[in-house]
Design a protein around this nucleic acid. Structure first.
Lengths: 333, 333
DNA sequence: TTGTACGCGTTATCAT
DNA sequence: ATGATAACGCGTACAA
């Protein structure tokens, strides 16, 4: 009971229970292989000592850390939250722990983070909303650790992928605007790889539909209500005839809505606004926000399944999955 | 270069470099103890194999995982984000990795998470915005792992603590309302331990100041813009003469502001609103939100320092720190 | 059903 | 400056 210095080990428990270390190990992992009496004796000893096995030792022995790493550009802004929680839940169900790493937009940091992660020998790595640098790709591949890329759709994934096409989102939204009769449309957007892909889809389809040039406002990461407000102001200053804006996140969209209300611009009467992400607050925005929904829960589940399958040696039918998206129509557009 | 099955080990590198395993280890950890030539030979071999040391093995050998766990009720809503990022940064600087665990408000889940965490033998555990159950406390103490509790101020911490007084926040806000001439005040709040502590402080001081009974709306976790809107509606329905509302998070406050604007209630003219957290969006709210700021960055740094000090065996001057808070005055109150 | 011996990959210690 | 040996805590393989 009383605790000297080091944590207890199987040996300590074994001594207390009057059995061998191996029996303790079995009591914990394959209790059905022990006689009821010894099992009970061992369990009592475990309880008495509050013994918790050392995962580093067992991980070393089994070459399985029962650990999965998730790499994010920033620690869970609202965007990835749903997916991360789902990933965590799914992994826990399978007996794996999730470790979150932050690359912080910075490419230099990526290398050291990647190394720190690989050192732990996780059973899988989930890359969320970020792309590995060429060196990053190399060390990942050399490590032989299963990798799932998400939140994007690449034709040449490092390993496995659960994503969706940002280009296609851009196309869909501008088509929606067009079908609703809008001519002069604009974008308020962050300026990362995926955002550029959405913008490309948006512009290309706009051109194909014969719309006039798209007005674009780029804002710095991270997306905030403030940048949404400023974005709308900038767009309307440069192109007062804009009647529809696609914001590259719900947060930006909320900022645009707040700014519109502030200026007495009726939404959707005078201005249509579409967001991206279907965050929790979207339905409570003034007015309820029309937005593009991505099923983060499903992405998390799929990513977990892929990694667990790999860890257990189960063959994988579809290593690359397009999860799609859909437009949630509310009042803002 | 070509990778067979298992990851490479010191042995592989040693063979390739024509030295012993020990020399490889030294090349990585204490390069100054090697002759320049051997050092170079080893480094070349490391690069050729893309060798990354196994942290489970070294952790086992050294009894130091170079890992710190942070336990949260939910995966980083905006509230704790600043603190977590700061904690992560500070720990990385010292060569530690952060692992995040989610307790999910659920007490039953806490036990299994705690066990999973203790199994990894982290060098420290940071408990953020949550209190361990009695059994939790017990297993934590038995594990002998340094623990830092944050985001609260307890008189009897498990081990170390970096927090602030929620009771005192409640007192400060109602005093502020009172000094501004408000008589009929209300609270829109979540219903957890810390929230109750703020409410207690708010009520007690209100009574001392001779204010009429405080109207309170409790909303479910997590706090959303929607609950903020509903909260304000409820409060104004039950007590139409309320002129000041304290919202227990900036998100709730933003909801209240949106609802007020929706109903044409002038803020701060007809209604004063104070939030909590000073989230990024607070300054861009309509109107800019008066709120209580907690220095999450500082909390993260301090928590990291405490744990690193413990891990390195440095004596700790102040194991319990009250970080305080302050009211950021903007336009909403 | 239970125990013994060994090895997972690394590093402290002692020796050279 | 470099190497040999042992040990960290656990679980597989085999023996009893």
């Amino acid at each position: 009971m009383s605790n000297s210095g080091k944590p207890f080990t199987v040996q300590d428990v074994a001594r207390l229970a009057g059995v061998s270390a191996m029996t303790v190990s079995r009591a914990l992992n394959t209790p059905e292989k022990l006689s009821p009496e010894t099992l009970k004796r061992v369990q009592d000893a475990v309880d008495r000592l509050s013994y918790v096995p050392n995962a580093m030792a067992s991980g070393l022995r089994l070459s399985r850390a029962r650990l999965v790493a998730a790499l994010l550009p920033t620690l869970v802004g609202p965007v990835f939250q749903e997916m991360i929680e789902s990933l965590d839940r799914s992994l826990n169900r399978h007996g794996y722990q999730l470790m979150i790493g932050r690359t912080g937009y910075d490419a230099g940091q990526e290398a050291s983070l990647l190394k720190a992660v690989i050192q732990r020998r996780p059973d899988g790595i989930v890359m969320i909303g970020m792309t590995a640098s060429p060196e990053g790709r190399k060390s990942l591949q050399a490590s032989r650790i299963p990798v799932v890329e998400t939140w994007d759709y690449s034709s040449s994934p490092i390993d496995m992928l659960v994503g969706f096409s940002h280009f296609s989102i851009g196309e869909t939204v501008v088509q929606y605007f067009h079908d609703a009769g809008h001519r002069k449309v604009a974008i308020v957007s962050a300026d990362d790889t995926r955002a550029r892909s959405r913008i490309a889809g948006f512009r290309q389809r706009a051109e194909a539909l014969g719309l006039p040039p798209v007005t674009i406002y780029y804002c710095d990461a991270p997306s905030t209500i403030g940048s949404g407000r400023r974005g709308l102001v900038d767009v309307l200053t440069r192109a007062p005839d804009v009647t529809a804006v696609f914001c590259s996140s719900d947060t930006l969209a909320l900022g645009a809505l707040i700014e519109a209300q502030h200026r007495g611009i009726a939404v959707p009467g005078k201005l249509a606004v579409v967001g991206l992400g279907d965050q929790e607050f979207a339905k409570d925005a003034p007015p309820p926000l029309t937005t593009v929904r991505i099923d983060g829960t499903r992405i998390g589940e799929l990513a977990a399944e892929l990694i667990v399958a790999r860890a257990e040696g189960v063959p994988i039918a579809e290593p690359v999955v397009d999860i799609g998206f859909h437009l949630v129509q509310r009042s803002s557009a």
